[in-house]
């Protein structure tokens, strides 16, 4: 088979095919249009991340809120910035509680889901389930929010929370009084956040467990380990960095979720007494307060600083996750479900 290329090729037709291992041989056509247009475009994300940080720093002016910024007390008195207390402590606690608990639940469930998909379920079943969990990832957060606010809240307040109080009320946090403002509170936010981040964490963990080298898995099976033992001691151990990375990214997603949380958490900037108390979170706070801040420059500056804190938290989680593994982060949900052609 002589090469029938239009352009003359230097290689003799009968010898080694000599496919150039580097791409340099194809540069004879000169730099391509894609390279010219693409190189500035590929840097846009970098520029944007830097621009977001810069704009927030400039807009807040790194205003000094009297050293009380990390304090618990938040009390905004319109028209009297001096008499207001600017503390984000209650928001940090609310964020840590909601995102942390949601992450715990989502981690446990995602591990179960990803091990089922990778180890136990037949391909057809896992494909159907992948489509359904993808759907879960695509449903707008306002839809989660209105479902939680209207449909779930009565169930939580009248059925779930009383029975939890009866059953495990002796656990710290589970025995407190019901939410004073209705059924909206931390527990409901945790529930919504859990199912909202599960698609992401499951897709990432599934890819991590799946990319464990086959020889390790087969060696385990050949030694007589059961599928579960291989999953637990070989796959999970070998994929632990990927699993941690998934957890960190889930955390970033949970911390950054604003709308759904704002709809169900009750928006009360106090330290919660129990899991049933209303609370608030950094992201939901800067979401539902922004339109009042249009009228109060001090409040706006405060909100922008909170947004900056939020940006730093999510960037830190993201950088850490990227250091742990090379898992494709933004796209795991889509690419994982669609499956590369080469896997078919």
């Amino acid at each position: 088979m002589g090469s029938a290329g239009v352009q003359p090729l230097p290689e003799p037709a009968g010898g080694e095919p000599a496919v150039p291992p580097s791409s340099s041989a194809s540069d004879r056509s000169g730099p391509s249009l894609w390279a010219w247009v693409g190189s500035p475009l590929a840097l846009i994300p970098l520029v944007l991340v830097a621009a977001v940080a810069t704009v927030l720093v400039v807009a807040s002016g790194l205003h000094n809120f009297g050293g009380t910024f990390w304090g618990i007390l938040y009390n905004f008195v319109p028209g009297d910035p001096g008499g207001s207390s600017w503390g984000i402590g209650a928001y940090v606690v609310g964020t840590a509680l909601t995102a942390g608990l949601a992450l715990l639940l989502a981690t446990a469930l995602s591990l179960a889901l990803s091990i089922s998909i990778v180890v136990y379920l037949p391909t057809v079943a896992s494909r159907i389930l992948a489509i359904l969990t993808n759907l879960l990832a695509g449903i707008p957060s306002v839809v989660y929010g209105i479902w939680g606010f209207v449909i779930l809240a009565p169930f939580f307040g009248l059925t779930l929370e009383p029975s939890m109080r009866d059953a495990i009320g002796w656990l710290p946090g589970f025995g407190g009084p019901a939410s004073a403002i209705g059924s909206w509170g931390i527990l409901l936010a945790v529930f919504l956040l859990t199912i909202m981040i599960i698609p992401l964490t499951t897709a990432l963990m599934r890819e991590a467990l799946r990319s464990v080298p086959h020889d390790l898995v087969e060696a385990g099976l050949a030694l007589g380990a059961t599928r579960w033992e291989v999953a637990r001691r070989v796959r999970m151990r070998s994929a632990r960095l990927g699993i941690w990375s998934a957890i960190l990214l889930g955390f970033g997603r949970a911390v950054g979720e604003s709308v759904a949380v704002a709809m169900v958490i009750g928006a009360v900037p106090r330290l919660p007494e129990s899991l049933y108390s209303p609370s608030t979170s950094l992201a939901s706070f800067i979401f539902y307060q922004l339109d009042s801040a249009f009228y109060y420059p001090d409040l706006l500056k405060f909100l922008v600083e909170v947004a900056l804190v939020l940006l730093l938290i999510s960037l830190a989680a993201n950088v850490l996750a990227q250091r742990l593994t090379r898992t494709e982060i933004a796209t795991a949900t889509t690419v994982g479900a669609a499956g590369g052609l080469e896997t078919q």
């Binding site: 390279a35 693409g38 590929a42 604003s258 960037l315």
Partner: peptide, 30 residues
């Protein structure tokens, strides 16, 4: 995927993932 020198591709990919991690509400402020 095709042209970028390895260091540039690395930085661009990391930055792309970072931007995906920026909370939507923060982009709203921006």
């Amino acid at each position: 995927s095709e042209y970028a020198p390895a260091p540039v591709a690395r930085v661009a990919r990391i930055a792309g993932n970072l931007l995906a991690g920026v909370p939507a509400i923060v982009l709203g402020y921006f």
